[in-house]
Amino acid sequence: MTKYILKRIFYLFLTLFIIASLTFFLMKLLPGTPFSNQNRMSPDQLKIVKAQYGLDQSVFVQYVRYMGGLLQGNLGTSFQFNNEPVTALIGQRLAPSMQIGAQAMVVGTVFGILLGAVAAIRKNTWADTLATFVSILGLSIPSFVLAVLLQFYLAYKWRIFPVALWDNFQSSILPTIALAALPLGTVARFMRTEMVDVMSSDYIELAKAKGNSSWKVVTKHALRNSLIPVVTIIGPMAVSVMTGSMVVENIFSIPGIGEQFVKSITTNDYPTIMGLTIFYSFLLIIVYLIVDILYGLIDPRIRLGNGGKE
């Protein structure tokens, strides 16, 4: 297990290195600079500014500098926002994003598991149909459509929640719901498939043959066995929540990283785009790593050596 984790951490850094390099060179491919449309600058001024950002050096020197900076945790400096370091931007904006992201993951997973389990246990009944319908809706309606609808009806028209802005827990509810829909749908579907599979397995039959009541069969044997694989989709779910957060934060004017990312895209703030890209990748790779380790820890077949021995 330790060897496996070390190997994974090595790959984590390798992947990050590749991502950082790719991002860097992609950005260098871009025609022009963010200053090219600022006509007010004279060529001399432009030179000074370029030197200030190190843009007058050769691409290779810039690359080495950038990577060196990364090693020290420096993600570069924004072209906008008074030359603020990207890390500082992230620092200021991390909390709201993390809060709604985490809330959405928890809400989506918990309700998804419940929905999926109910659907599996009541397979081919109206409860199953309803649960499947809800999860398909969650999967199919893009979070930004949902966000706009929620905002309009629940906040603007019926005034149950604040329309936008970020001050208290109340203001996090609508964005959380908008973001949770997709993970909820994903988990519910996955859970249903897993649990239907588990419920038809021989060991569930044996659990019934032991005299367990249907409730006990589910709680003692079926749930645990179907939950283990659900852990594996936490990673992809984190991706979808992150994707959603970019627009959802925008719609609800939440001062988070997603909103920042979209803003830097529209303002051609390349250092911020690069910095955030690397940061996002880092975050997700860490999530994947944690999920893998977690999976190994809770599944005895992996924890105690591979597969079955004959």
């Binding site: 590749i18 992609l26 785009i273």
Partner: peptide
């Protein structure tokens, strides 16, 4: 495949769109 898939696809898509 592992490396490509460990980069969040949205980010790749956005980067490509910018370039």
């Amino acid at each position: 495949v592992e490396i490509v898939s460990s980069v969040p696809n949205l980010i790749v898509v956005i980067l490509m769109m910018i370039v």
